[in-house]
C-alpha cells in the first residue's frame, strides 16, 4: 500500500501532462450519468485507484466543499484536483475536460429533438417524460431536505422562500443572498458566542456541520 502511494506520488510529478489531465476528466464526464453522488465512485476509481492523483480523504473534502460552493460538483472537484497537480492551468484544463463530453453529446441530442419534435410519438413520449421529471425533482427535494431543513429556523426559511418564489415570483438570486445573510446572523452569531464563552467547543460546532454537510454518508 505504501509502495503504491510512493509510486503514485512519483507519477504525480513526472507523468501527468495537461493533455492527460484533460483526457482523464473527459472520461469522468462521459461515465457520469446523473451527477451528484452518482459520480463519486467513478471519480474514486479514476482518480484515486487507477491514477493515484488524489487520496480518498482529499476527494471527500473536495466533494463536500464542491457541494456547498456555487457550481456543479463534478467541475468543482475537477478544479481542485487539476490545481493540485498542475496549478491554476491544471484546474482550468481539468474543468474543461469534465464539460467537454456534455458539449458534444447534448448539442447532438438538442439538434435531434428539435428536428423530431413535431412527430406525434415524440410528443407523446415527452409528455410521459415530463410526468417522470416531476417525481425526480420531488425525490431530489426529499433527499436534500434531510440535510438542509434541520431545525425550526430553517423550516420557517424554507416556507418563506417557497411562498416568495411561488406566489410573488421573487428572484432566486435575492433569495440565495438573503438566506446566506440570515444564516450568518442566526447561526454564525450563536456559534461565535458558544466559542467565546466556552459553553460549547469549536470542535463540536464544526462536527455538527460536518454531519450536515453529508461527508459522513459519502464515506460509506
Amino acid at each position: 500500500m505504501k509502495e503504491k502511494q510512493e509510486k503514485n506520488s512519483q507519477l504525480e510529478k513526472e507523468d501527468v501532462t495537461l493533455f492527460g489531465l484533460f483526457l482523464a476528466f473527459a472520461k469522468v464526464g462521459v461515465m457520469t450519468f446523473g451527477g451528484g453522488y452518482a459520480m463519486l465512485p467513478i471519480m474514486q476509481r479514476e482518480l484515486v485507484d487507477k491514477r493515484g492523483w488524489v487520496k480518498d480523504a482529499e476527494l471527500m473534502d473536495y466533494f463536500a466543499i464542491g457541494q456547498c460552493t456555487p457550481g456543479v460538483i463534478a467541475v468543482n472537484t475537477a478544479t481542485f484536483t487539476g490545481r493540485k497537480l498542475k496549478g491554476v492551468i491544471g484546474g482550468l484544463v481539468a474543468s474543461m475536460g469534465v464539460v467537454f463530453p456534455s458539449l458534444i453529446i447534448i448539442s447532438i441530442i438538442a439538434a435531434l429533438i428539435k428536428n423530431f419534435a413535431h412527430i406525434q410519438a415524440v410528443q407523446d413520449a415527452l409528455a410521459g417524460i415530463r410526468v417522470c421529471v416531476c417525481i425526480l425533482i420531488f425525490n431530489a427535494v426529499v433527499k436534500m431536505w434531510k440535510n438542509a431543513v434541520v431545525d425550526w429556523i430553517t423550516l420557517i426559511m424554507f416556507i418563506l422562500i417557497l411562498i416568495a418564489s411561488l406566489f410573488f415570483d421573487a428572484s432566486p438570486i435575492l433569495m440565495v443572498v438573503l438566506a446566506a445573510i440570515a444564516g450568518i446572523i442566526v447561526k454564525g452569531r450563536n456559534d461565535a458566542d458558544k466559542i467565546k464563552y466556552g459553553s460549547d467547543t469549536k470542535e463540536q460546532v464544526v462536527d455538527d456541520i460536518a454531519v450536515t454537510s453529508d461527508s459522513r454518508e459519502v464515506k460509506k
Binding site: A179, I209, T212
Partner: peptide, 12 residues
C-alpha cells in the same frame, strides 16, 4: 458554515 446553513435551505 453559518452562511451554508442558510444556503442549503434556500437551495432546497
Amino acid at each position: 458554515n453559518a452562511a451554508l446553513y442558510g444556503l442549503r435551505t434556500a437551495s432546497v
